[in-house]
Design a protein around this nucleic acid. Structure first.
Lengths: 128, 128
DNA sequence: CTGAATCCCTGCCGATACTG
DNA sequence: CAGTATCGGCAGGGATTCAG
């Protein structure tokens, strides 16, 4: 366990990668990268919408009515910047912008599933 | 795909659970629960330490020197509250407090692995 | 030794109003 | 239609100090 230097580790990241040993939060840590992509209120709900299919700005607004234009815009920009979404302006009038998950964004499915599964098993500490 | 109402769904949560359809952020959503547990700077690094074994307050401080006492204390309280850690006062002097992952906390291993795996595959948008 | 209390500073989120 | 600009409130996080 302490001397694993040969071959491929079963767990493909943690033990051997130097980023698994950082002593403080750093943006190059893969876990931080992933959490940064999911960061912010509404972000996971927006991603959920896209896991169900492509969406335009207006469709998202209808699906998440309590989400303000500004924050929705922020989230879309953030997710696009993070490589999760791809943005495509629809030609014609009225202007429509089409968003869809990139291949990388689609791989967030299992990540959210892992989070979901853990949360489902969660039992609030103790009532008595 | 659209009519699955029989038996056990392959994916154990998302399609049928009403919490998968919430229209705004809510603490009862399993994904929110999980992200709430991981929330806050330093939190995942603290969990990483515990995935390697039990720790005392001082041992954590040594492992993460740039983490202030207050925030470390906050994180330990938060993770204990979230059912991730278990706290045990060591008898004797000097007072020591021993922390360890609960079974539920140990199940965060796969979750962090999923986040890691996604982050590892991340390529910053484009350089050119 | 292991925290709790306090203070300040920063960054997020929401609401509103405005532009191509 | 799809955003940007601006402002205010509030919570998070760090440093320091104090307590059991």
């Amino acid at each position: 366990m302490t001397h694993q230097t040969v071959g491929y580790p079963a767990r493909p990241g943690l033990p051997d990668d130097p980023r698994a040993n950082v002593a403080e939060p750093t943006p190059s840590c893969p876990v931080e990268i992933a959490l940064a992509a999911l960061h912010g209120r509404w972000t996971t709900l927006v991603i959920r919408e896209f896991l169900r299919g492509d969406r335009t700005f207006t469709e998202l607004r209808q699906a998440l009515p309590a989400l303000s234009d500004k924050v929705l815009s922020d989230r879309l920009a953030h997710l696009t910047e993070a490589g999760v979404l791809e943005r495509r302006r629809q030609p014609g009038w009225p202007p429509r912008v089409h968003y869809a998950l990139t291949p990388h964004g689609r791989r967030l499915g299992p990540v959210l599933q892992a989070l979901w599964d853990w949360g489902v098993q969660h039992r609030p500490p103790v009532t008595g």
